[in-house]
Structures are given as structure tokens and as C-alpha cells.
Write a protein that binds this DNA or RNA. Structure first.
Length: 479
RNA sequence: CGGGGUGUAGCGAAGGGGCAUCGCGCUGCUUUUGGGAAGCAGAGGCCGCCGGUUCAAAUCCGGCCACCCCGACCA
């Protein structure tokens, strides 16, 4: 009866996830395998993510621009590691205008190369640095296995691209944007992500270092929700991005790139959903409040709708996103429907409430009668606003508690295997090679998610190799 | 690309040579409505595609295509 925050035991996520995406009307399948049609309700969640990020980008001095969808194949080939990393998943255009093209065009899987080409022209002097750009775009990666939002053949994202005079400036930028992602995830998406450094195995093709934020989903699996790369001088050298220094010496730039995608919509679904459906954090919810009228006949309908219209007007004037559900369905149906769609607060108004000048508020994050309260219509706006804040904070708290109770310290391979069995992340001292990582993946299915930036200090013994280790690493199953 | 499976109404399924079926959903009307309502009347089909066998094919045979699940890639 009572609906709990999701645990691996309560929901079969593989079935739950797709069903919820489609039933909640976030998206539907497209004629092309692995692509999705994002429907209005899903799009508005993405827009909330977009707005949250874009505001932060402006605050950190980045400008938006747009670069072409098509990239000459030869561009990709200029950075050896980059082309090797992306080749298997490229979509390539060979014909256009009724003719075979002289050089095939790649549909961008990411834009480092074409933006690098532009940067090379734009940057002459140290006075042009740093160059801080961002673009909102779609990219295509022909993945073998896809899931709506979490991994689609085409996805939407923002990709930031910057150029700097020194390694340290580029590194500072990389870490700053990682902080931006973490701040957004925690304060708006209510997902307590871990900031970390990727291993060489998992880093971006062509990068010096890749940082990431990892979130724990409701099934205790890990999802990389954003990445920030320090590209070193690799792309600068491949694309000839040079500047003349104050000392009149020609130098290669240091570049960065960073991105967050529509995968974040999937992260919000997976991190917060329960067995009744979605639970959306108020800050990203398309509708923060849904008003459900309750009435028996036309005269009651008139009275109820009059009250609702008045209250909704007040709520909207206070900047709260409200939807009025006046469909010809039973109230019970609507309650379940909006719970499934994850609306944080439901406002019920019926004749009995109007008699007492009351309203009913039900919160999505607290299940059943516990979450339902009868309140006066006086001061409703302030009450709803407080309630939304409380829900936002409570959802972050729930997700944090869930995450922390599913991270386990391990000192041996056997202990790690127990964690894999139970579900969760294993945290332990790590001093292993890429081959060791691959072996662990083959044998258990878990991968090295990241080296968290917050390290306890000191040193220890690697749980696999027994070698002295300087760093703690997180291992977990990934999406 | 390997192994397994499925294609019949918008969705989910039954039917295995002889009128194209059922449930949900959809449309209309009526009664309902404080936690997923009910009755009546309707609409909706290239039975994945191409070929073969047959008086007759959704059904049997051959080929093809698409999609799903499990492995190798990934924001």
C-alpha cells in the first residue's frame, strides 16, 4: 500500500523505466531505431535543465554559438585517439544532391574537431584568450543498445568548448564546469552526485583527463550525468590552435570541453521514481502543482471551478507552475495519473472544502494519507511555496540517504563481490592497471566509475592487487 | 556480428487451411464522480513483405525484412 522511495527490491527497473517514460507521456518511440520523439511533458523537463545550466554558463562568462551538424570526415581523423574512440558509432553521409560526395560527411558525435578548426582561425594572440564558448545542439552516436533518454542514437546536449593560455587555466576551467554540473544536479535535480576523475580506461577519446559527476539511480546502479574534459594540447596540436604570447612566442592553446545531455532527464526519472511512477523535484517539474476539482453536478462544478480559478490565479501570480485538470474523469483516476507523472503537489478542491474555506494539499514525496493535509484557503500561496521547498529538500535528503546506505567500503575482492551481489557501489583503495580494471569488469560486471575528488587522505592497500595505493576509487554497475 | 524470440486494429493478445476474433483504448448517448466507474450503441484490418502449394492461405512451404531480449561500445 505505502509507496516507498525506490529500492532495488521494490521495482524491476528494466520494465519500470520504459513503461514510465511512455505512460507518463515524456517520449515515444520513433520510426528510427534508438531515436525517440520527445513529447511536451518530457521536453519541459529538458527545458528546466537547459535553463538551469544556461543561467550558470552566463554567470561564468560563456557565450552561446552554433556550429554545423556535418563534419568533414578528415577532421575526425586528425586526432588519432579521438577518431579511434568514435569510429564505430559514427553516422556518415555519403550522398547528397543526388550525387556521391567527394568526401563523406560525418554527423557530429561531438564537435571538438569542427570547433577546433574555427578556434584556430579566431585565436591570434594571448589577448583572444580565454575563449569561452558553448553550443546547444543535437549529436548522433550509433550505439548498439539504446534506452529512451539514457542512451539514444540522437541526443540533445550542450557542449562547452574553451581555449586557454596555460595548462593550469584549462584545468581550473575544467573543474569549474564540473562544479557547475554538480551544483545544478544537487540543488535543482536533487541528485547528490559524486564529483570524480575517470580512469584512463574510461576517459574521453583524445583527452588528457576526464572528470565526471556520477549519480546513483534507484536500483543502485551508477549513471554518468555530466563530463568535463581537460583536452591538454592534443586538439590544439591537431587543429593548429596557436596564439602569440606576451613574449612574442607562438604557443599551442590548452583546450577543454564539457557536456550535459538529455540523459539528465533519464537520471531524474531513475534517481527519484518509485513504484507509483515519477517523482519530479519541484525545481524541474513542468507542473509544480496540479489542481483537481471534485464535484457531482453542474452547479457544484461552477462553484468549484470558480474557487479553483481564483486560487490558481494567485499561485501563478507568485510564479508557481500550476495545471488545472478539468478532464471528464473521476478524481481517483486523476490522482493516480498525476502521481504517475510525478507532479510534486496536488491541490484538491470540492464542495466540502469550499464550505469550510479549506483546500487539500497532497505531496508526492510522502506517500498516502501521511502526505495529505487540510489547510485554509487563506495564505495558500505561502503554504504551497514552503511545501515545494520542503519537497525539494526532502527529495535530495532521501536520495542522499539512499546513496550513502548503498556505498560500501571494500578491502578484498571477495568483499567487492558481495557488494556486486547486493547492489551498490564499492569504495576502496585502488592501485591497479587498465588490465586489472578490465579483469574486474569481465568477472563481475562492475567498472571503475571514478576516483572521487574528495579523498580521505593518507594511503592504503589495493583490495585487488595488494599494492600500496594512494587513491580511493568507486566501482559500480553502470548504465 | 554471434545465441534466443516475436511480427494479426492505436496497445496487448488468441486463432495453425473455409465469414477476421477477444481485452484495453477510441467515438456517441445515458447514469456516475472525495482514490483507477457502469450500461447501451458505434468506428477501426495490406493478419510484416515477396513468392510458392491449394478450389480456398493469417494459417502450410521458401526467401526476405523489421523489431525485442542476452553478449562486445557509450553522455
Amino acid at each position: 500500500m505505502a509507496s516507498q522511495a525506490v529500492t532495488p527490491q521494490s521495482v524491476d527497473f528494466s520494465k519500470w523505466y520504459n513503461e514510465i517514460v511512455y505512460r507518463a507521456d515524456l517520449a515515444e518511440q520513433s520510426p528510427v531505431r534508438g531515436c525517440i520523439i520527445i513529447k511536451p511533458y518530457g521536453w519541459e523537463i529538458w527545458e528546466a535543465i537547459r535553463n538551469g545550466l544556461d543561467r550558470r554558463f552566463k554567470e561564468t562568462g560563456h557565450q552561446n554559438a552554433y556550429f554545423p551538424l556535418f563534419i568533414p570526415e578528415s577532421y575526425l581523423k586528425r586526432e588519432a585517439e579521438h577518431v579511434e574512440g568514435f569510429s564505430p558509432e559514427l553516422a556518415v553521409v555519403t550522398h547528397a544532391g543526388g550525387k556521391q560526395l567527394e568526401e563523406p560527411l560525418v554527423v557530429r558525435p561531438t564537435s571538438e574537431t569542427i570547433i577546433g578548426e574555427a578556434f584556430a582561425k579566431w585565436i591570434q594572440s594571448y589577448r583572444d584568450l580565454p575563449l569561452l564558448m558553448n553550443q546547444w545542439a543535437n549529436v548522433v552516436r550509433w550505439e548498439m543498445r539504446t534506452r529512451p533518454f539514457l542512451r539514444t542514437a540522437e541526443f540533445l546536449w550542450q557542449e562547452g568548448h574553451t581555449a586557454h593560455a596555460t595548462h593550469d587555466e584549462a584545468e581550473a576551467e575544467t573543474l569549474q564546469m564540473l562544479d557547475v554540473y554538480a551544483d545544478f544536479s544537487i540543488t535543482e535535480a536533487a541528485i547528490p552526485v559524486v564529483k570524480g576523475l575517470k580512469s584512463d580506461n574510461e576517459k574521453f577519446a583524445g583527452a588528457l583527463r576526464t572528470y565526471c559527476i556520477e549519480g546513483m539511480m534507484g536500483d543502485a546502479k551508477a549513471l554518468q550525468a555530466g563530463t568535463s574534459h581537460n583536452l591538454g594540447q592534443n586538439f590544439a596540436k591537431a587543429f593548429n590552435i596557436k596564439y602569440l604570447s606576451r613574449e612574442n612566442v607562438e604557443e599551442y592553446c590548452w583546450t577543454t570541453s564539457w557536456g550535459m545531455s538529455t540523459r539528465m532527464v533519464g537520471a531524474i526519472i531513475m534517481a527519484h521514481g518509485d513504484d507509483k511512477g515519477l517523482r519530479l523535484p519541484p525545481k524541474v517539474a513542468p507542473f509544480q502543482v496540479v489542481a483537481v476539482p471534485v464535484y457531482k453536478n453542474d452547479s457544484e462544478e461552477g462553484m468549484v471551478m470558480e474557487t479553483i480559478t481564483r486560487l490558481v490565479k494567485e499561485l501563478r501570480a507568485a510564479g508557481i507552475r500550476v495545471h488545472v485538470d478539468n478532464r471528464e474523469e473521476s478524481p481517483g483516476f486523476k490522482y493516480n495519473d498525476w502521481e504517475m507523472r510525478g507532479v510534486p503537489v496536488r491541490l484538491e478542491i470540492g464542495p466540502k472544502d469550499i464550505e469550510k474555506n479549506n483546500a487539500v494539499l497532497a505531496r508526492r514525496d510522502v506517500p498516502g494519507k501521511e502526505g495529505k493535509q487540510f489547510v485554509s484557503q487563506e495564505g495558500l500561496v505561502a503554504r504551497v511555496r514552503d511545501l515545494l521547498d520542503d519537497i525539494q529538500a526532502n527529495m535530495l535528503r532521501q536520495a542522499t540517504e539512499f546513496r550513502d546506505s548503498h556505498i560500501h567500503d571494500v578491502k578484498s575482492y571477495d568483499e567487492l563481490k558481495v557488494v556486486v551481489e547486493q547492489g551498490g557501489w564499492a569504495r576502496g583503495w585502488w592501485a591497479g592497471s587498465s588490465e586489472d580494471e578490465k579483469r574486474v569488469k569481465d568477472e563481475t560486471g562492475v567498472t571503475l566509475r571514478c576516483f572521487p575528488l574528495e579523498q580521505p587522505g593518507g594511503s592504503g592497500i589495493c583490495w585487488l592487487t595488494g599494492k600500496p595505493a594512494e587513491k580511493i576509487a568507486l566501482f559500480g554497475k553502470a548504465y
